[in-house]
Design a binder for these strands. Structure first.
Lengths: 188, 188
DNA sequence: GCCCGCCTATACCGATCGGTATACTGGCGC
DNA sequence: GCGCCAGTATACCGATCGGTATAGGCGGGC
């Protein structure tokens, strides 16, 4: 592994465990077995390293979702495909997902929040488009696409959060139960 | 306002805006118009200030929820009372709720996470007890109380997060719609 | 008048923060 | 052999980090 990849990997390890501000540049380069000028050669600044990390690790999720998220008039199948896409990505990128999820809830003026803002706004927008399209088939959903997008993504992140702390398994059974509860509530 | 309260108020302002690590002790005492030894006289350490802030500001929510969260065989009313309790508290303590929500998603080894861990575990436990009791009346809910507690709290925090960013109003209408969607899904 | 204890300020501590100036290395084109 | 350039290390910068030693102000009890 070249030094650039090594820096990205160690930064992800440390930041996902203890946070962006709590881990300094010196600690990252020590963990990677290199020195500071090497890091600044590749990334220019601590913030540049953060942006590069998010950019490189986000593409996988973005690609998976554009593939799964096209509405084909079968809402159940589409929602299940999206949840499955998130779960698969989270399982394969647990540390990164934990870090990114934490940054989404970071204070609005923090660097962490700014770094993940664009990506998460994109996810919400894609989900809103999906529910808007679905409302053409299911009239009683009309006008609530914002709330549906937010609560659907909130539910996905709730389950991934449970899994990250050892309280759930992100298997295909959970995919079906999650989508079922989202559609029909808790009584059925 | 005495100096102790002044320190707590300014710390909350700054931490909710920019984060615990990003705001140093010096900046807090400057904002409060006092000096460092005064802060260390009252709180002993930066972490002590954080703990004191969370302890003092959390009691209101805890009291409101123990009042609202007793199950009386009417699940709809109980859930609505809980959501109303959260929304009312969030509206009256917007900055603190933003901070506490962010800390809940902070890295597991960070001081922020440790500081809010006990309180949030208590909230989850209370919700699980509620859904366990409700399952005695609604047999088809049995065995899913953990998932229900997690998704219910996740939904509440999703809506509060939307409100904090200007995308929702935490009024009584939203209380009813949220509980209705949680119970019956998105189609009705 | 005097002392005591709570509260506060000045001035300082070593450590760490993000970032950089400078120089050296090795490989590659010519 | 020579120049060039990406990559790396040594050593350093001023600023800020959390925290503290010391001393003085000040009100109440006696």
């Amino acid at each position: 592994m070249d030094n650039r990849s090594l820096i990205l990997a160690r930064a992800l390890d440390l930041w996902s465990e203890r946070g962006y501000d709590a881990v300094g540049v010196q600690e990252i380069v020590d963990a990677a077995g290199i020195t500071k000028p090497t890091l600044y050669h590749y990334f220019g600044s601590k913030r540049g390293l953060l942006d590069a990390l998010i950019e490189e690790r986000s593409t996988g999720l973005r690609d998976a979702l554009t593939a799964a998220g096209t509405y084909d008039h079968n809402l159940v199948m589409t929602l299940e495909a999206i949840v499955r896409g998130y779960f698969t990505y989270a399982r394969q990128n647990a540390e990164f997902y934990r870090m990114q999820l934490g940054f989404w809830f970071a204070p609005p003026q923090s660097e962490e929040y700014a770094a993940v803002l664009a990506g998460n706004v994109g996810q919400h927008a894609a989900m809103e488009r999906l529910f808007e399209a679905a409302a053409l088939d299911h009239g009683n959903m009309r006008g609530r696409h914002k709330a549906y997008a937010a609560t659907f993504l909130g539910m996905i992140n709730t389950y991934i959060g449970l899994w990250l702390n050892g309280y759930a398994e992100l298997d295909d059974d959970l995919v079906r139960r999650a989508v079922h509860q989202f559609q029909h509530g808790i009584y059925s």
